[in-house]
Amino acid sequence: MLDTLKILLHQGKQYIPDVTKAKVPGIFRGRPVISEDKSADNQSICDVCPTHALFEKEGKLQLDLGRCAFCGECERCFPNKIHFTQDYKLATNKRENLIVTEGEDKPIVFDKSAVRPEIKKLFGKSLKLRQVSAAGDNSGEWELGATGNVNFDMGRFGFEFVASPRHADGVVITGPISENMARALDICYEATPDPKIVVLAGTDAISGGIFADSPALDRHFLDEHDTDLYLPGNPAHPLTIINGLLALSGRK
């Protein structure tokens, strides 16, 4: 008993008091900023990207966080052009808001007006989620799991992962959705009572990521259901996840 108390004493307080303001340590590949530097032509910058996340529109370079594998290759090759900041607030409810444009250094916008009214009304204080790994590489699953540990302590906001879809208010999908998992995902979604939300966690889920053109995927689920929250990352960082859920449930 005494040694248990000693352990508790040694551990002290471990939780992050304010998850909206916490700083991530060291380098982190969060929201990128693209400068107006013109020393390299846009095509050669786009060419280095493994997942076609970089492209040019109306003469400006753009980066799609929904496709970005956060590999850092573009930043390493063109440090004057692209820089990844420590801003982990990458979540949004609109796919087009994941596009970062050259010369614009501003936060990713979550559009509160686009949230369905029943989400705020029913899930504002308690949101139970069923996680479905559909060919996820276990990094996204890891980070979703980490949101519940004593550091991030997501449970304090009433967000929790539950064992059965029947107890859930929505599904959180990781992975590019393999054809071998597509039917199980459909069944799980059907088993979740209405109203329900769909969250895509990580680049693989949002766009397929590096697996985007694998013939072994079946992403029909996403054609049939709207997405309520995009959580970019490879994998999505726990702070990205928690801040995204806070925004979606109208807590922030």
């Binding site: 559909a134 060919a135 393999s178 054809e179 071998n180 998992m181 697996f211 694998s214 072994a216």
Partner: peptide, 10 residues
């Protein structure tokens, strides 16, 4: 098999 993404072919 549920997780098959065809890594080797890619």
């Amino acid at each position: 098999g549920y997780q098959h993404r065809d890594v080797e072919k890619l």
